[in-house]
Computed example of a mutant assay.
Amino acid sequence: MIRFTLMAGSLFVALCACSAGSGTRGVGFTGIDGEPSGPWAGAGGGVSQPLGPIEALAALPPRAVSAPGAATAAAEAIDNGGRSPATALPVELLGSPLMLSLVEVDGRPYAVLRRPEGRRGDLPAGAAARFVTAVPMMTGCLAAGPATLQNRPRQIGAAVPLDCR
């Protein structure tokens, strides 16, 4: 019985070690309708698994800024929110393309929505309320307060404080 347990345990550890890696896939079942029987050696070296929104957002470094008061923290977060794919994650909210980024204001994280570079106009009607409800799915954190809209003279963005504990 001990020998069986040791064999099963070592097989489990070996299989777990095989799965830890760069997230590439390429070994499939053998003999079923042409599925691969070994690692894929085509262009790019393997099949990559696409990142989910939370992983993609986590891959972008948050901007760290400071604000003089709590009333201006959300406005500071919006001003520093990303608007390009290098600094923000493209998302769609209420049928409108927007950019989602993380900004830390005096150590407190904010999720920020802004229009992409080159796009003008207000955020869609109801975007603030929908943003608050979508924050857990977009960021993996809870909303720690209401959304703040920044208008000058148009709505340029929205920020929601995050609780990532």
Rank of each mutant, 00 (worst) to 15 (best):
E55D: 15
P50Y: 08
G23E: 04
G23M: 06
V91Y: 02
L123W: 06
A56M: 07
A111L: 12
G121V: 11
G82I: 13
T133M: 13
G26A: 06
I32P: 05
A111I: 11
L113S: 08
A125I: 11
A134Q: 15
L89F: 09
P97N: 00
A56D: 09
F29Q: 02
R120S: 14
P124H: 11
N80M: 01
D79Y: 00
V65P: 01
R120W: 11
A134G: 01
P116K: 02
V47H: 13
E55A: 15
D33A: 13
L102T: 07
F29D: 01
G52V: 02
A43N: 11
A56Y: 03
E55H: 10
G38H: 13
G82M: 13
G95W: 11
V47K: 08
P116G: 02
P39T: 10
G42A: 02
V105C: 07
V105R: 06
P39W: 15
E92C: 04
L60D: 05
N80W: 01
V65G: 02
P50S: 13
D79E: 03
R83V: 00
V112A: 02
G34D: 01
V112Q: 00
S37H: 00
G126I: 11
P50L: 12
L98D: 12
G44S: 08
L51R: 15
R119N: 07
A128S: 14
S66D: 12
Q49E: 14
E76D: 09
G28C: 03
G121F: 10
L123P: 04
G28D: 06
G45L: 10
A125E: 14
G42C: 02
I54W: 03
I78Y: 02
E92K: 11
F131W: 07
G107E: 01
E92G: 11
G38W: 07
Y110L: 01
R63Q: 07
A41N: 05
P36C: 00
A70M: 11
A128V: 04
G107P: 03
G38P: 04
P39D: 09
R119H: 09
S84L: 14
G69Q: 08
S96T: 15
V103D: 05
E117G: 08
T72K: 00
R108M: 10
L51E: 14
A88V: 06
A125H: 08
R115F: 07
V105H: 01
T24R: 14
L57P: 12
V105P: 01
R63E: 03
S96A: 14
G26Y: 07
A64Y: 09
A73I: 03
P116M: 04
G38F: 06
S37E: 05
A86S: 14
G107I: 03
L98R: 12
V105T: 08
L93Q: 10
A127D: 09
I54Y: 05
F131K: 05
V47Y: 14
A127M: 11
A111H: 10
L113P: 08
V91C: 07
P62Y: 05
A128C: 05
A127V: 10
D79N: 03
A67H: 02
G45K: 13
A64C: 05
T72G: 04
A128M: 06
R120E: 14
T24I: 07
G44L: 08
P90E: 13
G28M: 04
L113T: 08
E76M: 12
A111K: 10
F131M: 07
L123K: 06
D33H: 05
Y110H: 06
P90F: 10
R83M: 04
